[in-house]
Design a protein around this nucleic acid. Structure first.
Lengths: 115, 115
DNA sequence: CGTCAACATCGACGGCCGTCGATCTCCGGT
DNA sequence: ACCGGAGATCGACGGCCGTCGATGTTGACG
């Protein structure tokens, strides 16, 4: 599978503005950024974070997004593969939670004030 | 043109993890993120930032990227339209510079520690 | 054990986007 | 005025991706 590797744990140390990053690192980082460069997935992250208990199942997300259930599942899979969400199956439901620090590590790569 | 609006000045106040962001804001933010969700453009930002004086012309960027000159110009235009780079034409050369705070404002939207 | 519901997977379709070569525009130098 | 070079624009092509309906899988419940 051409799944994007979870960069959340490995991209925490590339200031981006310091030295010209290599083609390999650029591809990795771009893959992670592409995971959140989508309106539906941004809203999913936001919905999960704002939901009660910091977790939400698919049934909680389909309606507010206005997309079909397969599409929502697809986006959630992308976010899980990117290391931004965790999936926990309890009974028939699948609960998704934000990975702590994942978004922050992405943000830290972009920040320029880290001189 | 379907140019992405510069979000650098307007997206500085959406924590993303606080309240579920609307479809409109999600589209705006996704457009900005898509601008940097590309290996070539990430390297361009990095190259410009690391270049002497914080500015670089196209001729400085074509070779290190290994892409054609039209492609580099295209990527630079995307970054300028996204409000991440400024373009200043001096003589025959076009010099590009990082917009101060642009990347940081994107990062601030992603950060979750702003509670 | 049969049924229903939640979710994932599949296959297909359409549009967007990265890339290129060719060309156009504009400025400097001679 | 002419030429050369820097860079932007154009048109085209190929691949990736978001979306859907249909279907498969799995667990709860009677």
């Amino acid at each position: 599978m051409t799944t994007t590797l979870p960069v959340a744990t490995g991209a925490c140390c590339a200031p981006l503005v310091r030295a010209p990053l290599g083609a390999e690192d650029a591809t990795r980082l771009a893959g992670t950024l592409r995971a959140i460069a989508d309106p539906a997935r941004l809203r999913l992250l936001s919905l999960v974070a704002a939901h009660e208990g910091g977790e939400a199942c698919v049934c909680d997300l389909v309606e507010p997004l206005g997309l079909s259930q397969p599409t929502v599942s697809h986006h959630l899979k992308v976010l899980v593969d990117a290391g931004l969400l965790t999936r926990e199956k309890r009974g028939v439901w699948a609960y998704f939670t934000l990975v702590p620090g994942a978004l922050d590590s992405i943000a830290s790569v972009l920040v320029t004030t880290g001189s």
